[in-house]
Design a protein around this nucleic acid. Sequence first.
DNA 1: GTAGGGTTAG
Length: 639
Amino acid sequence: MFAKGNSDLDLAFKVFDKMPDRNVVAWTLMITRCTQLGYPKGAIELFVDMILNGYVPDRFTLSGVVSACTELESESLSLGKQLHSWVIRSGSASDVCIGCSLVDMYAKCTIDGSLDDYRRVFDRMEKHNVMSWTAIITGYVQYGGCDIEAIDLFCKMIEGPVPPNHFTFSSVLKACGNLSDSRTGEQFYSQAVKYGFASDDCVGNSLISMYARSGRMDDAQKAFESLFEKNLVSYNTIVNAYAKNLDSEGASELFHEIADSGVEVNAFTFTSLLSGASNIGAIGKGEQIHARLLKSGFQSNQCVCNAMISMYARCGHIETAFQVFNEMGDRNVISWTSMITGFAKHGFATTALEIFHKMLKARIRPNEITYIAVLSACSHAGLVSEGWEIFNSMHEEHKIAPRMEHYACMVDLLGRSGSLREAIEFINTMPCTPDALVWRTFLGACRVHHDKELGEHAAKMILQQDPHDTAAHILLSNLYASSGQWDDVARIRKNMKERNLIKEAGCSWIEADNKIHRFHVADTSDPQAQEIYEKLDEMTLEIKGLGYFPDTDFVLHELEEEQKEQYVFQHSEKIAVAFGLISTSRSKPIRVFKNLRVCGDCHTAIKYISMATGRDIVLRDSNRFHHIKNGTCSCNDYW
DNA sequence: GTAGGGTTAG
C-alpha cells in the first residue's frame, strides 16, 4: 500500500511508527520497501530493531534482509554470511524463497567471483523452481565470469521438469555473448522461439547484444530491426553495439533517431555514446556529448562521470579527465581505476601510483582490474621494484589472486626493462600454465631487445596453443625481418596465407573540423593526397638534415634499401601527421590515433618532425599515449 | 509480504 517515491517512504515510516500493534508482516513489509526504494541500510537497521524488540523473523523477513545485503554488495558480505548461518540454524536452509535470495546475495557480494558459496546454497535447496535456476545461472554469468558453467547448467535445466522463462534465456544468451559464441547463442535463441519468446523484448535485446559481442554487427542490426517492440534498452543496446565496434558515427546517428522517435534517453545512452567517442579518440564528439549531458541532468550520474573520465583520458586530455574526477561527488572503484589507467597510459606512472595510494587511504577496495592498471603503470615507466612490491601485495593484503593478465603485466615489466632471463624464469615458475597472452607479451619484449632465440621459443609456445594466432606470426616475421632472414619471413607469410590469417591492417586517424580522417599504409584516397605527400617529402628531407636516419628494420618485405625507405615513409601514422601539419591550427597539438602499436621508425621520425616544425604531437597507439615535443617523447622511448 | 532479466564506465 505504500511507497512509490521517497516521500511515500517517509509516510510509510510515520504510519509504521504509530502502529500500536506491529506484527512480523508489518516489519517485513517495511524492510522490503526500504530495500526496494534504495535504502538497504535502513532495511538492515529495521531488521536489527525488530530482533531487539523480540520479534521472530520468518522466511519472508530473512529473504528481505538478505536482499538488502545484496544491494549493498561487498560492504555487507559478512552480515549476509551471518544471516546465512542463522538460516541454517533455524532449519530453513532448504527453503526455496530464502535460497533464491541467498544465491543472489552471494553472487553479487562475493568479490573474487568464487562460485562455491552460491553453488552450495543452490545445491542445498529442497527443490528448484524457475527463479532458483535463473538466479544461479545469472550468478555464474554476471558475477562469477563463468559462462561455460552457466551454459552447462542451462542445458541441465532444460533436461529437467522446470521450463526456462524469458529471464533464463536472456542470461544464457548473455553467457554466449561473453564467449563471443554466436553459434551456440543462435541455438539457444531458436529454443527460445519454440518456448514462445520470439517477440519478448528482453530476449530480443539479449540477442542483439550477443551478436554485437560476437562482432556480428550486421546480424545485430537485423535483430534490432526485427524487434517486435523497441524500448529504450533496445536502443541503448544497439547504440552501444555501434560504439563498441568503433562506429561512433553510427552511434550518433542512432542517437538522433532515438530523439526523433520521442523515446527519452537515459544515462546508459550517454555512457555508450561517450565510450564510442573515446574508442576512436574523437574529442570533438566527446565534447559535444558533454555539452548535451549538461542539459540532460545526467552529468552527475556515477557511470556517466566514469565514462567521461575515460573519454577525456583516452582522447588525450588527461587534465580534463582529472578535473572531472576531482569534481565528482561519489567515486567508486571504477572511477579510481579509470584515473589510474589514464595516468598510466599517458606515462605519468608516479602520479598513477599516488592516486592508487590515495584510493587505498580512502578505503576504496581495489579489484583485479585496478591491479592491472597499477602494474601496467609500473611497466610503462620501468618501475621494476615497485611492480614487484605491488604484485606481492595484491594477494597478501587484498586477497586477490593474480590472474593471467597480472602475470602478463609482470612479464611485460621484466621483459621491457631488458631482464628477459628473469622474465622467462618468472614464466616458468608460474603456478598455472602460461597462456598465449603471457607468451605474446614475452615475445614483444624479445622483439624490442632483439633476442631471436627466446623470441622463437615464445612464438612456438603461442602457436602450440593457438595455431591461428595472427600476432605470433607477425611478431615472429618481424623478428626475422629485423635480422634480415628473408627466407624465414617468406615462409611465415606463406604459412599465414595458407591458413588464411590476415594481418589487421595498420590504420591511423586524426580529427579535423569535427570529422575523422582515416589513413592506411600508402593511402592516396584523401582528396588532399597530393599535398600530404608533398609535405611528407619535404619533412623527410628536412629531418634527414637534422640527423634522422630511417630504420628500415620495420619493413616486412625484402626490398632494396631505397625502396624500403620509401615504404617506411608511407606508414599510416606518418601520413596522418603530415595531414595534421597541413590542416590543423599551429596553436594546438596534432593528435593522431593508431589501431596498432606505433612503429619504431615512425616514432623516431615523428620526434624529429616535432623538432623541425615546433609542433607538439600527441600519438595514441593501441598501448599508450606518446606526448612528443621538441624531439623527445613522454614514453622515454620505452613502449 | 519473498526470490530472477536485457543496455553503461576500468
